[in-house]
Amino acid sequence: MTEIATGARRRKAGNALSTLAYPGGLCLVLLALWQFLVPALDVETSVLPVPTEILSAGWENRDLIREHTWPTLLETVVGFAIAAVLGIVVAVAITAVPAIHKTLYPLLVGSLVVPKIAIAPLFVIWFGFGYTPKIIMVVLIAFFPVVVDMALGLTSIPPELRMLNRSMGASRWRAFWKISFPFALPNLFIGLKLAMALAIIGAIVAEFVQSSQGLGYLLLQANSTLQTPLFFAAIVALTVLGVVLYMVIELLEAVVLRTRRR
């Protein structure tokens, strides 16, 4: 038993190493190619800076980047949280009440097709220049995967479990909290991870449309002043932000679903 366990642990550690080492190795190779090919082909810095230039631009402007990361982080996290709660509530409503499902679901799917980016300028007219229009954009973009995946989880409860549920005479409330909600959690997390990735896109797009701060604003500024190394450094900051937020959800998922089959 212990031999099997340590063997499994070693294999797991090996897997973890290769999951980090393989893509990491590829990135290093690509960065090295980038670093040497760009001067070799005589490309200007304002067109494509080399990785070391991006790194030093990022370091020199670290306070500026940090200052502009906070608003974007705030918009993303607040918008995501609202989208998550709203998405769960709507999913529960449409799966619990057939009439709501019939009324709301076609509209939801219809509004999924509406290009929300196209209506972003309208939000400035409606909600002004502050955080509100950005957060609303994030909510609109991040909301759908939560609804769809949570609803899928709630409807995929096997019929035997539903029957068992009813034979135990549980109230709907108790059945929901003890069975339906935990049952749908793996699906919910799929939706949440997708929502988090989309939330950042929503924040940046909203900042592109109108803003005086945030990484989206910094990107536009760097672009219009031909500070291409700074532009790339802001992209790196944005990527790091996205990866960290995504990993927070993954970590939460690993903790919540720790007892389940993977």
Binding site: E160, G169, T259
Partner: peptide, 25 residues
């Protein structure tokens, strides 16, 4: 009731799956 599939709840231990019968009531 026992079905062809055991329909146990994956997030509950064996004991808690059995005790579900009381909790639901």
């Amino acid at each position: 009731i026992a079905f062809q599939t055991s329909v146990l709840l994956e997030w509950r231990s064996v004991l808690d799956n059995v005790l579900l019968q009381f909790e639901m009531r």
